[in-house]
């Protein structure tokens, strides 16, 4: 991670923690993040956008940070919005995991923290795998968008795969997070719903599972069986 990205993330955390409207995000200039330096922008890459949106998904999922960042692109397509949503989802899932770990280490029942029970440990391990998968998918998708100069058509394979993978993680992540939290996680007062409800919403926005599964499946069918691997390896790595 570059120094510039570290600073960007520090700024994002400072602005987004506790934020309840979009004004401070606009003030800090995130609309210029993806605008080239020659055009008066910050000249950030999609990896930067992924990092900021990850933080937005953790800390301020109800604020339309993605819209502000994408506005810098000018011509924004549905796959661009899907890509931005994947990054938000990765952040929100990371936050759901962090809250869950914190809760099971604190809450005691039967005389010990919930996290000492194997059944709870195994559930959280399953959840952590899903979170890791969505993080990795978001990063690889961002790398492809950077390699294609933000061309969503050229990156549509990766966007489809990443959004589909993120969508499919939503059920596991939200259900385990709520299960290990017990009743407290179901209250309005507690922070868990601040990330789980947006996750439920995002799964259906900018392409639900069926939408991206059809698109990706048909693209792969056009590659042919052996062609899938050839395409996969030619696209990156």
């Amino acid at each position: 991670m570059s120094d510039a990205r570290d600073m960007l993330c520090d700024t994002a955390r400072a602005v987004l923690r506790g934020a309840d409207d979009i004004a401070p995000v606009e003030e800090v200039g995130f609309a210029l993040l993806l605008v080239a330096e020659g055009q008066g922008g910050v000249g950030g890459d999609w990896g930067d956008a992924n990092a900021v949106l990850h933080i937005a998904g953790m800390l301020a999922p109800d604020i339309p940070v993605a819209d502000v960042i994408l506005s810098g692109l000018g011509d924004v397509s549905m796959p661009h919005r899907a890509a931005a949503t994947v990054s938000l989802m990765a952040g929100a899932m990371g936050q759901a995991l962090a809250l869950s770990i914190d809760h099971v280490n604190t809450r005691q029942q039967f005389g010990r923290p919930l996290g000492k029970f194997q059944a709870v440990q195994q559930s959280l391990a399953v959840m952590a795998c899903e979170v890791a998968a969505v993080d990795a998918a978001a990063a690889a998708m961002a790398a492809r968008l950077d390699a294609s100069g933000f061309d969503a058509d050229a990156a549509v394979f990766e966007i489809a795969a990443a959004k589909l993978r993120a969508n499919r993680a939503v059920g596991v992540v939200t259900s385990i997070a709520h299960q290990v939290h017990g009743a407290i996680g179901f209250t309005e007062e507690y922070d868990l719903r601040r990330v789980t409800i947006p996750l439920m919403r995002w799964r259906g926005e900018h392409g639900n599972d069926a939408r991206w599964a059809q698109a990706l499946g048909r693209q792969v069918a056009s590659f042919g069986g052996r062609g899938l691997w050839e395409n996969l390896t030619a696209r990156a790595g």
Binding site: A132, A133, A140, A162, L164, R165, W212, A213, L216, G217
Partner: peptide, 19 residues
């Protein structure tokens, strides 16, 4: 139905490759 399954399997396989 088959296109959808291929899509889902591909998304998972691609993600696993990244991990």
């Amino acid at each position: 139905a088959i296109a959808g399954l291929i899509g889902k399997l591909t998304a998972e396989m691609w993600t696993l490759r990244q991990l």
